[in-house]
Measured scan of single mutants.
Amino acid sequence: VFVDDHLLEKVLELNAKGEKRLIKTWSRRSTIVPEMVGHTIAVYNGKQHVPVYITENMVGHKLGEFAP
């Protein structure tokens, strides 16, 4: 499973602090992992960042699938 390192670091850091804030990313190719559930990730679609709230059903899919 591929997840960009910088994105995973941000998610794990927020989980350690117990925070839930918006994470901006250009990494549409990253796979959604269970650690991301409950976070809102702003995924770049080529024009703007689209906020995507991550749920359990999204695990295993790519971030780009949810930012048309």
Rank of each mutant, 00 (worst) to 15 (best):
V1F: 05
V1K: 12
V1H: 15
V1Q: 14
F2P: 06
F2K: 06
F2T: 07
F2L: 12
F2D: 12
F2I: 08
V3N: 03
V3R: 01
V3Y: 04
V3A: 02
V3I: 11
V3D: 08
V3Q: 04
V3C: 11
D4H: 03
D4K: 00
D4P: 03
D4E: 08
D4Q: 02
D4L: 00
D4F: 01
D4C: 09
D5T: 15
D5V: 15
D5C: 15
D5F: 15
D5A: 15
H6R: 10
H6V: 15
H6Y: 15
H6Q: 15
H6N: 08
L7S: 01
L7Y: 00
L7P: 01
L7R: 00
L8T: 02
L8K: 04
L8C: 06
L8I: 09
L8D: 01
E9I: 13
E9Y: 09
E9T: 15
E9L: 13
E9F: 11
E9C: 15
K10S: 14
K10F: 08
K10L: 15
K10A: 13
K10Q: 15
V11M: 03
V11C: 06
V11K: 01
V11T: 03
V11S: 01
L12M: 13
L12T: 08
L12V: 09
L12E: 06
E13G: 07
E13A: 12
E13N: 08
L14N: 04
L14R: 02
L14W: 02
L14H: 05
L14Q: 12
L14C: 08
N15C: 03
N15H: 03
N15M: 03
N15W: 02
A16W: 06
A16E: 12
A16F: 07
K17Y: 08
K17R: 11
K17V: 11
K17E: 08
G18S: 09
G18A: 08
G18C: 11
G18D: 07
G18E: 06
E19T: 09
E19M: 09
E19I: 13
E19W: 03
E19H: 07
K20N: 04
K20G: 03
K20T: 07
K20L: 09
R21L: 10
R21K: 10
R21W: 04
L22D: 05
L22V: 13
L22M: 12
L22K: 07
I23D: 02
I23F: 03
K24V: 13
K24L: 11
K24Q: 08
K24H: 12
K24T: 10
K24S: 09
T25A: 03
T25E: 01
T25H: 02
W26P: 10
W26R: 10
W26M: 08
W26H: 14
W26F: 14
W26E: 13
W26A: 11
W26Q: 11
W26N: 15
S27H: 04
S27N: 03
S27I: 07
R28C: 14
R28D: 05
R28L: 05
R28Q: 06
R29Q: 13
R29S: 07
R29D: 11
R29M: 12
R29Y: 12
R29T: 11
S30L: 02
S30P: 01
S30D: 02
T31G: 11
T31Q: 09
T31P: 03
T31M: 08
T31R: 09
I32Y: 00
I32A: 04
I32D: 00
I32L: 05
I32P: 00
V33C: 11
V33D: 02
V33N: 04
V33A: 05
P34R: 11
P34G: 10
P34I: 14
P34Q: 11
E35M: 10
E35S: 10
E35I: 14
M36E: 00
M36A: 02
M36W: 01
M36N: 00
V37G: 03
V37D: 04
V37H: 05
G38Q: 06
G38I: 00
G38Y: 08
G38D: 14
G38T: 08
G38A: 10
G38L: 07
H39T: 02
H39N: 02
H39C: 03
T40I: 10
T40P: 01
T40V: 11
T40S: 09
T40Y: 07
I41S: 00
I41H: 00
I41Y: 01
I41Q: 00
I41N: 00
I41W: 00
A42T: 03
A42I: 03
A42F: 04
A42P: 01
A42S: 08
A42D: 06
A42Y: 04
A42H: 06
A42G: 14
V43R: 00
V43H: 00
V43N: 00
V43D: 00
V43L: 07
V43A: 03
V43I: 13
Y44N: 05
Y44A: 05
Y44L: 06
Y44M: 07
N45H: 09
N45W: 09
N45G: 06
N45D: 14
N45P: 02
G46R: 11
G46E: 07
G46A: 10
G46T: 07
G46W: 12
G46C: 15
K47H: 12
K47E: 08
K47R: 10
K47Y: 11
K47N: 10
K47T: 11
K47L: 11
Q48A: 13
Q48W: 11
Q48Y: 12
H49R: 03
H49C: 07
V50M: 13
V50I: 14
V50H: 12
V50L: 13
V50N: 13
V50A: 09
V50D: 10
P51T: 10
P51Y: 06
P51F: 05
P51G: 08
P51Q: 09
V52L: 10
V52Q: 04
V52F: 06
V52A: 04
V52M: 08
V52N: 03
Y53E: 12
Y53G: 09
Y53H: 13
Y53M: 10
Y53K: 14
I54R: 00
I54T: 02
I54L: 10
T55M: 13
T55L: 13
T55G: 12
E56M: 13
E56H: 11
E56L: 14
N57R: 09
N57V: 12
N57S: 13
N57T: 11
M58Q: 07
M58A: 08
M58K: 09
M58F: 06
V59F: 15
V59G: 02
V59E: 06
V59R: 06
V59S: 06
V59Y: 08
V59T: 12
V59L: 10
G60N: 15
G60P: 01
G60L: 08
G60C: 15
H61D: 08
H61V: 09
H61F: 14
H61Q: 12
H61W: 07
H61K: 13
H61I: 09
K62W: 06
K62G: 05
K62Q: 09
K62I: 10
K62M: 11
K62E: 13
L63I: 05
L63P: 00
L63W: 00
L63G: 00
L63E: 00
L63Y: 01
G64R: 12
G64E: 08
E65C: 14
E65M: 11
E65D: 06
F66E: 04
F66S: 03
F66Q: 05
F66L: 07
F66Y: 11
F66R: 02
A67I: 05
A67G: 07
A67R: 03
A67M: 05
P68Y: 08
P68S: 08
P68W: 05
